[in-house]
Design a protein around this nucleic acid. Structure first.
Lengths: 340, 340
DNA sequence: CTGTTAGCGCCTTCAG
DNA sequence: CTGAAGGCGCTAACAG
């Protein structure tokens, strides 16, 4: 590895002191035009690149933020990460990315690694179950601004960005109710996950509000499990006429299961899902969903973090922002819609 | 921001010298059990975290790699990035991620930023058109191992990981031919993109091999444009009976366009796409695709990079690895298949 | 086995 | 407007 030029090499070539080079680069003080030109020429000649590691150490400021998500192959998370990366670039910051695989231990280790790297702040989609304590509550993270995305960190005082989980689920359920359904089943992943818990609650409340009895099937993230649960539901005595799927994965698994059983919503059973996806309107009929604004969520999280980095005074009280969701009616719910 | 403990604070508390602390942390030399215990106790007490920035500067080694992709919301790229992040974690490396939005200028700037941060290597999905020079050929990148993913960097001597683009396209085309189609049209994005160019060539060769005339529609990445092109194709005198879509985006846009026109493959027109996607088998019928092994691609890229980082001797000659693709027959091509 | 010295590349501070 | 000295936190090299 060819040793790259240092500031002192530039200084020597330009016949100035190292400080003049530093000042030219940072614009931190006025430098005579003649000297500045010489410095630029030397920089050009040597292909000089400032060493950001040394700068970070000296300035006690890394110009890096961290992003920590469970997976990247979930389009919702990927979309968030993408826009955060874009915002960071606009601020001339680098992004350190890591994945926790929904494992709190990994989340802790990766957040610690980022802390050791002196990232100035962290945007995280927390992985710990609702029932447990977040590993990010550890003392050592006190010094770093953290923004929780999609799921809050209870008792942390961190900023958080959420969507209307409960209202969204109610919206979807009420839509099915308005179409005349009375036996609507909820299908989701473990209620340990914040989003699942809230959506489940939204469904329950909507059902109870009209005096109906909620029915739930909680699946693992495996496709097989969904098939079993769906089969059970649809062969029960009081077989549901509509299904509410609590997230993207569930919706997909349920659709697969229904396909296996030869059932195509809304024939046989109506269906509404939480979280939109690329091909939702390519399916026949299109899938009616509650859409969450993933890009806006990511962008806002980044904005909140950078605003906090800009504020030297550290307001301790984390602000929780909740973004609205939207019902997109396609065909799977059984509503008559005019195709464009 | 509370100033965090330094190594010297630990040393003082433990009543040893700073070097002893360093040695305990690195296991770089034997330390008496008694002292080591004291050091650990002090570390625990102070919640000491080693400063990786200082370490990077001193060791001239950052333990970071960079990933530079066009977008993260393309599931193929996201999948690559995810597994690279996983491999990096296993090596105890951090990942600096950035997105180029398919813009060579942005790619250059972000790669430069990573270089300034002393990332030890870079995995990149290059954004420059086939016709142009890669910005990564600049001298300053000579000192950094680069692995090109999905698309090569001509004349670079970098390692590259590709899939069988040409053969995959031929495979898809031949499948349609074997089903009796003679008028098969190719639909893709600009041939300036390496993958598009190769797939287009594969299609052309397959057609010409049986004496048929290739027909191509090159679309922009906008949905509207696809609709126009598809409409043109299907209203032409010698209207194609089958379509070969060269990537994920094209497939989706063509399906949307066909839906708008009230055509549902394989009725009216057969369809095969390059690159599999999550819901390809949920559509009715399922979409026949050429699948590329995105996870394997990402993992292999990471392995290649880390192997190169491990090798102190720098073999200059970059090796090009080509991974196989696979035809997944579903229903959209019109082949009779048994549904599971 | 443990400690001291020096310096990675840069920027803040203080002189000139 | 420019330069010289010092140190950010850590580890390699050399003493003892």
């Amino acid at each position: 590895m060819a040793k790259s030029a240092r500031m002192i090499d530039v200084a020597k070539l330009a016949g100035v002191s190292i400080m003049t080079v530093s000042r030219v680069l940072n614009g931190s003080a006025n430098v005579t035009d003649g000297l500045r030109d010489k410095v630029f020429a030397a920089i050009e000649h040597l292909s000089y690149q400032r060493n950001e590691v040394a700068r970070s150490l000296r300035e006690q400021r890394s110009r890096q933020i961290g992003i920590l998500v469970p997976y990247l192959f979930d389009p919702f998370f990927a979309s968030c990460a993408h826009v955060i990366s874009t915002v960071a670039r606009q601020h001339a910051y680098s992004v350190v990315l890591s994945t926790s695989n929904e494992d709190p231990q990994t989340e802790y280790e990766e957040a610690s690694r980022m802390l050791r790297r002196n990232v100035e702040g962290l945007i995280v989609i927390p992985s710990h179950p609702q029932t447990g304590q977040s590993p990010l509550l550890a003392d050592k993270f006190k010094s770093m601004p953290i923004v929780a995305l999609d799921r809050p960190i209870e008792g942390s005082g961190f900023d958080s960005l959420l969507v209307e989980n409960q209202r969204g689920a109610a919206l979807g359920t009420e839509h099915l109710l308005s179409l005349g359904h009375k036996r609507i089943a909820y299908i989701g992943l473990s209620d340990d996950l914040y989003t699942m818990c809230m959506r489940h609650r939204g469904y329950n409340l909507a059902m109870e509000a009209v005096g109906l009895k909620p029915v739930a099937a909680i699946c693992s993230s495996a496709l097989d499990d969904a098939l079993v649960k769906v089969r059970e539901l649809l062969s029960s005595k009081r077989k549901p006429t509509a299904l509410f799927c609590a997230n993207n994965l569930t919706t997909r698994h349920v659709l697969h299961s229904l396909q296996t059983l030869g059932i195509y919503p809304p024939n046989g059973v109506a269906l509404v899902g939480f979280d939109d996806f690329e091909t939702a309107d390519l399916l026949r009929p299109g899938i009616t969903v509650v859409r969450q604004p993933s890009e806006l969520l990511g962008r806002t999280a980044a904005d909140v973090l950078f605003k906090r980095l800009g504020d030297s005074r550290k307001t301790k009280t984390g602000k929780s922002t909740v973004l609205p969701v939207e019902l997109i009616v396609r065909g799977s719910c059984g509503a008559r819609i005019r195709h464009k």
